[in-house]
Amino acid sequence: MVSLPAPDSRAPLALHRLTGFVLGRIGVMPALLTVGVFVLLPCLWLVWLSVLDRSGALSGENYARLIEQASYRRIFLITFRVSFETVLCCLVLGIPFASYVAKLPPRAFGLVMAAVLFPLWTSLLVRAYAWLVILQRNGLLNTWLQDWGLIDAPLPLAFNEFATVLGMTHIMLPIFLLPTISAMRSVDGNLLKASESMGASGLRTYLSVFLPLSLSGILAGTILVFVMSLGFYVTPAILGGGNVQVISMRIARSLSTYSNFGASSAIGVVLLICVFAVLGLSLLLRRRLSGGKETK
C-alpha cells in the first residue's frame, strides 16, 4: 500500500537526514585523524626540522648545503637514474610477462601469481645477499663462466650500478606486475577478437588494442616502482658496494652517525617534493590519457 507521507512523518525524516549527516561527518573523523596524526604531522615535523640549524635556530643552511654541495646533486641524480633504470627493466621484463600471464586460464594463472607474489614474503636483505653470492668475483656466475671457458678473468658484476638495478628490479618486478596484470586481465577479450576479425594481426592487435587498454595499469606500476625505488636503501647499500650512493643512504648516514636531523630532514623534504612532483606528473598524464581525446 502506497500512501502520501503523513505530516508528522516529515519530522523523523528530517531527523534521519540530520543524524545521517552528523554520523557521516563523525564517520570520516577517525580516518582524517589517523591520516593527520600518522602522515601529515610527521611530514610537517620533518619540514620544521629541516629549517633548523644545529643550535635550533631558524635557518636555511640545510637547503643551502643541498645546493652548494655537488655531492648532493650527484646523489639525487644517481638515485633518479637508478630508479629510472629499474623502471625500464620492469617495463621490458614485466610487460611481455604480464601479457602472457594475463591470458592464462584461471588455474595456471593462480599458480603463476602465487609464484610472482612469493618473493614479496622474503626479506630484502636475504635477496640482496643472494645476488651477491651469485654476482661477486668468486660467485656462482663468474665461476660458471670461467669453468665453461667463456671468460678468462671474473667480470665485475657485483658492487656497481648493474648489480643494484638488477637487485632492485628483482624486488620491484612483482610490484610492477600486480597493477599491470590486473589491468591486462580486465581487457575485454572480445575487443581483441574484434580487432582480429577486422583483419589485424596478433601483434597489431597487441600494440593497438591490448597495450593501450592496459596502459593505466602499466602507468600505475611504473609510478609505484619509480617512487618506491627513490627510497631504496638496503639493495643499493649491499649490491652497490658504495659505488652507488643514493638518497636514503645519505639520510641514514647523517642520522646514525651525527644525529644531524636538520640536514637529513632537508634531504627528506626534497625527496618528498620530488615524489609529489612525480605523482602529480603521472596524474596529469593519466588525465590526458583518459580525457584528452574529447576535443579534436
Partner: peptide, 13 residues
C-alpha cells in the same frame, strides 16, 4: 568477415 559482438566490442580508447 565483419563481426559484431554482443557487447559491441568497441575500442574504448
Amino acid at each position: 568477415f565483419g563481426v559484431m559482438f554482443q557487447n559491441y566490442a568497441l575500442f574504448p580508447h
